[in-house]
């Protein structure tokens, strides 16, 4: 009898260990899609920030058309409903993401950050074609909005 009991406990522990390891190493397809989508979304922000930042930093000449297009893209990106990206279990407990558990623990605070970004990018889009100074003035708050969310909800690199 004791032998059987030990076997059962051992088998149960093995299952426990294996399933934990599986959870750490493998994502469900839904989790993987969410992770891929939000990282792609971040790349699109960076891509569109590029020309605006280059102009704001006076590394490239101001071009009203390019600035307006990039700012419109940022505003459109910010307005996308991202709620399906943030699948449970895709925080820093898994490999390949710096999304802090605070996102899920404080979803209202996290969403408030997106609301700020929507406002800042909408303002930028409305003035990006009105000259370098107007664009620059509206670009600062967009950067602050990026930082504000990353301050609380993104972990440092390992």
């Amino acid at each position: 009898m004791p032998f059987k009991k030990i076997t059962i406990i051992a088998a149960a522990s093995a299952v426990g260990i294996v399933s934990t390891a599986f959870a750490a190493g493998h994502l469900t397809p839904e989790q993987q899609r969410g992770l891929d989508a939000r990282q792609a979304h971040m790349s699109l922000y960076a891509f569109n920030l590029g020309p605006l930042g280059g102009m704001a930093q006076e590394q490239i000449p101001y071009d009203a058309e390019v600035a307006s297009a990039a700012a419109a893209n940022l505003a459109a990106l910010a307005a996308i409903d991202e709620s399906a990206y943030w699948v449970e279990g895709t925080d820093t407990s898994i490999e390949g993401t710096r999304a802090k558990p605070e996102i899920w623990a404080d979803m209202a605070g996290f969403e408030a950050e997106q609301v700020k970004l929507v406002a800042a990018t909408a303002t930028l889009a409305s003035v990006a074609g009105d000259g370098l100074d107007a664009m620059k003035a509206a670009f600062g708050p967009v950067g602050q909005s990026c930082g504000s969310c990353h301050e609380s909800y993104r972990a440092p690199r390992q």
Binding site: Y45, A46, F47, L49, G50, G53, A56, Q57, R98, G140, G143, Q144, C146, G147, S148, H150, E151, R154, A155, P156
Partner: peptide
């Protein structure tokens, strides 16, 4: 110097964590 001013990295990622307060 630009990072310390705007918080943007050269590839337009932004500062995060404690560095946001520093910026």
């Amino acid at each position: 110097a630009e990072y310390l001013k705007s918080g943007f990295t050269p590839d337009f990622d932004s500062a995060g964590g404690e560095m946001v307060a520093v910026i």
